[in-house]
Amino acid sequence: MKYLVMVLGTQADYKAMTGNANEHSPAWTEADIKAMFEYMGAINDDLAESGELVDAQGLTEPARARHVTLGEDGKAIITDGPYGETKELLAGYWVLDCASLERVTEIADRVTRCPQPAGAPVYPVVIRPIQEGAGDIC
Rank of each mutant, 00 (worst) to 15 (best):
W94Y: 11
K15M: 14
T60G: 10
D109W: 13
A16K: 01
T112P: 00
L4P: 03
K75A: 14
Y93I: 03
S50Y: 07
D13T: 02
C114E: 08
A65I: 06
S25C: 14
A76W: 04
S50R: 12
D46T: 11
A48F: 12
Y3D: 02
E23F: 13
E61P: 09
T10G: 01
K87A: 14
Y14E: 02
D80W: 09
W94G: 00
A12R: 10
C138K: 11
L101Y: 15
K2V: 02
E102A: 15
E38R: 06
L4C: 13
I33T: 12
V54S: 02
A35N: 07
P115F: 03
L47P: 02
D97W: 05
G51P: 03
Q131D: 07
E52M: 13
I43Y: 05
V5S: 00
G9H: 01
T29Y: 09
P26D: 07
I78K: 05
F37H: 11
D80E: 14
I77L: 11
M17K: 11
D32S: 03
E23K: 11
E88P: 04
A120H: 01
M6N: 04
E23S: 14
A21M: 08
T60V: 15
K15W: 10
D13I: 02
R113Y: 05
G41M: 06
L8I: 06
V7A: 05
D80P: 04
V111K: 00
S25P: 05
V54K: 02
A21C: 10
A76N: 08
E106V: 09
T29W: 06
T29L: 08
K2W: 00
T105I: 08
R110G: 00
D73A: 07
N20T: 14
Q11F: 04
K87D: 09
G74M: 10
D109C: 09
M17E: 10
A12V: 03
R128Q: 12
R113V: 05
D46M: 08
G84F: 12
M17P: 01
Q131Y: 14
T60Q: 14
A42Q: 12
A91D: 01
